[in-house]
Design a protein around this nucleic acid. Sequence first.
DNA 1: TTCATACTTCGATCATGAGCGAAGCATGTG
DNA 2: CACATGCTTCGCTCATGATCGAAGTATGAA
Lengths: 234, 234
Amino acid sequence: MKEGPDIAQIAALIGDPARANILTALMSGKALTATELAFEAGVTAQTASAHLAKLTDGGLVAARKSGRHKYFTLVSDEVAGVLEALMGLAAGAGHLRKRTGPKDGAMRKARICYNHLAGDMGVQMYRSMVAKGLLEPSDESLILTKAGHAFVSELGIDLDALPTSKAPLCRECLDWSARSSHLAGQLGRAILSRFIALNWAKREENSRVVTFTPDGEKAFLSLFPMPERSIAEL
Amino acid sequence: MKEGPDIAQIAALIGDPARANILTALMSGKALTATELAFEAGVTAQTASAHLAKLTDGGLVAARKSGRHKYFTLVSDEVAGVLEALMGLAAGAGHLRKRTGPKDGAMRKARICYNHLAGDMGVQMYRSMVAKGLLEPSDESLILTKAGHAFVSELGIDLDALPTSKAPLCRECLDWSARSSHLAGQLGRAILSRFIALNWAKREENSRVVTFTPDGEKAFLSLFPMPERSIAEL
DNA sequence: TTCATACTTCGATCATGAGCGAAGCATGTG
DNA sequence: CACATGCTTCGCTCATGATCGAAGTATGAA
């Protein structure tokens, strides 16, 4: 009855407070140095170094040297997805209240999940795109439809300019505050970048909160309207 | 920069091998006794007792006394969802190969995720229902449409007979082998039960594998055809 | 070149928690 | 009632791993 992958090892990596803080800091999507992460974790540089080695060996974190600096990032948005799922469970288990969300309403509304938009607005965007036939499920992954191609081109995203990477273009990511999927993958990243380039939204300095301007939010709601409710609500 | 829920505590609970084995065993959806779980975990009854107390206190597992027996289940399918996500990451990080799945093809194809169908067939069912307008996203959750109501009634599921529970009727659950959503919630459970009642599928004795009969699989594929690919595949 | 900074490695400490033997409590059966 | 079984609690052991001081290596700047 020992079926499937071994989850204890991965969970144990996340289960140390210092390492959890490191991973949470990397959810911002920024590449952070070992010294910065030591500060985030609240431990010395030597302790952080050991932790980072474990996270790297464990396949959760990637490292890149740049002169004397070493930058760390999460390996993939799948890691971010797992952290999101754990956050949802931790938030729920901690309070045992129904539909418990984060204390910070801004985090719930719109925040960075690694490199794409999460929160209620992230979920709304995903659902709107599915409802409008811009995204479509297939047997392998989410597919950007022809209409979707036109849509993102009109938004100002050049799909041919995206890096050739093994990361999928579109991907679901389960949102912990909204308990439903938001859009991850290269397209999710590109869209958030576009919002920021258009000055519709900006990132907060030391937070994962994404703040939309009133005009930006209006434009967002116009582009990604809430899908209509069906008549058969229970 | 200590935003969001504390994930270390939850992850540490999962990060012990004995407790991970317990949780994995409970993914079968069966209610198992403390003695059975001790066996699954490979520890003595006293050790299992301590572990189960931690899982119960931590909000991951629920206990119910029945005479001298005590039965344990996962608290919710959200817990199952987190375990699924961790399994996906563990499978990937363990091998660092692209699109790594489980070793057992049967688990990948169709298996129990707590109480509903998971694997490729679970994902196909979900997507088919969305594509056919039986399930529809709303701002709160997945909604079963009017057409969906008719569909499940015709399948033989009496929605009025489902337990009045705070668990949602429909819910997404991210599938670790297919890396996309399958249907959880009360409806997901009811549908799998219906498949089994119709003898389309059966559960394996000491495994989470769900085996469809040839006729059952044919009927399944007829009811839940694979959504068509859009022309704009990349 | 010297000095400062970023990061890693080593060695030692010690808090933590998993584990089990022993014992006790609760329930069921004959 | 006696005995068996399921489960919990207590006390102790000891392996593990996080932590930091010390020291070393690598890189950058003056």
